[in-house]
C-alpha cells in the first residue's frame, strides 16, 4: 500500500464525511419512525430510491427545471410516506412489532419491483443540483457532496429546534414517550405519526437526490440503506444525534478501510458496527433512560 499524502487524507475525509451525511439523512428517517412508534422501517433505503426515481421522472423525463423538480419530488414523497402509514402501517397497530418488520421488508421488495416496472432496471443519470467541483488547494470536492454536508447540518439543527420549540414537535416527543397519554391530551396521535412517516420519506428523498449524481439512479441504490442502519445501530438507534454520529463515523472510516483492504471493499461499515457494539453494546449515544421491559 502506498503512503497517503496529507492531501489524500483530507480528500478521503471529506468524501467520507459527505457519504456519512447521506447515510445520516436515511438514518434520521429510520430513527424518527422508530422513536415515535417502535416500528422499524426496513424500506427506508427504498424510500430514498423512490425519491431518486421520482426526481428522475420530473427532471429528466419531463424536463422540468431542476429545483421545481426537486420541490415536486419532496411533495410527492412526503405524500407517499404519509400514505404508507395512514393506509397500511396504521392498520397494524396492536399487532406484534414483528408483523411490521415483515411488512416493511416486503414493502421494500415491492418498491424495487414497482420502480423497475415503471422506470426499468438500468442505471440512469440525474444531474447534480450544482454541477462541477470546488477546489481548495489540492482537495477537490463535488458541489453535491458539499451540499450533502450542508443539508444534513441544516436538517439536524432544524429538527433540534422543531422538537425543542414547536408545539407539534413537543407533541411528537410526547407521543413517542407515552402514546396513550398523548391521546388523552388531545394530541392527534394518528395524524402526527403519519406526518413523521412523511418527514422520514422526505429526508430519504433528499438523500436519493443527492446520491443520484454520484452513483446513478437504479432500483438497487436503496441497499445503502443497510449502511444507514448500521450507523443508526452504532449510535444507539433511539437517538437522532447518535444516528448522525454513527453514520459519520461509518462514512469517514469507509474510504480508508477500502484503500487499506481493497479485497474487502464495502464491508467496513459493518465491521465498524461490530467493533462499536462489542465495546458499547448500547451504542454510542444510547438513550440514558432505557425503556423498561
Amino acid at each position: 500500500m502506498e503512503l497517503l499524502t496529507i492531501a489524500d487524507v483530507l480528500q478521503l475525509l471529506l468524501v467520507g464525511l459527505s457519504q456519512g451525511c447521506l447515510y445520516s439523512l436515511i438514518a434520521i428517517g429510520l430513527v424518527l419512525v422508530y422513536k415515535a412508534t417502535e416500528q422499524v422501517n426496513f424500506a427506508q433505503g427504498e424510500f430514498m430510491m423512490m425519491g431518486a426515481f421520482v426526481g428522475y421522472q420530473f427532471i429528466v423525463l419531463m424536463g422540468l427545471p431542476y429545483w421545481l423538480g426537486v420541490g415536486l419530488t419532496l411533495i410527492v414523497m412526503g405524500a407517499f410516506g404519509y400514505g404508507i402509514d395512514a393506509l397500511v402501517v396504521r392498520r397494524l397497530t396492536g399487532q406484534p412489532v414483528f408483523t411490521v418488520f415483515i411488512l416493511t421488508l416486503a414493502l421494500g421488495i415491492a418498491l424495487r419491483a414497482v420502480a423497475g416496472m415503471i422506470w426499468g432496471f438500468g442505471n440512469y443519470t440525474l444531474p447534480a443540483p450544482i454541477p462541477g467541483n470546488l477546489k481548495i488547494g489540492p482537495v477537490v470536492m463535488a458541489w453535491s457532496s458539499i451540499l450533502a454536508i450542508l443539508l444534513t447540518a441544516l436538517i439536524s439543527v432544524g429538527l433540534y429546534a422543531f422538537f425543542r420549540f414547536s408545539r407539534h414537535g413537543a407533541a411528537m416527543l410526547a407521543l413517542s414517550q407515552n402514546q396513550l397519554a398523548a391521546f388523552y391530551m388531545g394530541i392527534p396521535v394518528k395524524r402526527l405519526t403519519s406526518v413523521i412517516w412523511a418527514m422520514s420519506a422526505v429526508f430519504g428523498a433528499c438523500a436519493g437526490l443527492l446520491l443520484a449524481p454520484i452513483t446513478l439512479v437504479s432500483t438497487s441504490m436503496g441497499f445503502i440503506g443497510f449502511k444507514a442502519f448500521a450507523g443508526a445501530i452504532v449510535g444507539g438507534f433511539g437517538s437522532i444525534p447518535g444516528a448522525v454520529a454513527g453514520c459519520l463515523l461509518i462514512g469517514v472510516t469507509e474510504p480508508f478501510f477500502d484503500i487499506a483492504f481493497p479485497t474487502m471493499k464495502g464491508i467496513g461499515a459493518y465491521l465498524v458496527m461490530f467493533a462499536v457494539l462489542l465495546i458499547r453494546p448500547q451504542g454510542l449515544l444510547a438513550q440514558i433512560h432505557a425503556k423498561k421491559v
Binding site: Q177, L180, A181, H289
Partner: peptide, 8 residues
C-alpha cells in the same frame, strides 16, 4: 399509574 411523559 400516572402515565407521565418520562423524559419531558
Amino acid at each position: 399509574g400516572r402515565e407521565v411523559f418520562p423524559l419531558l
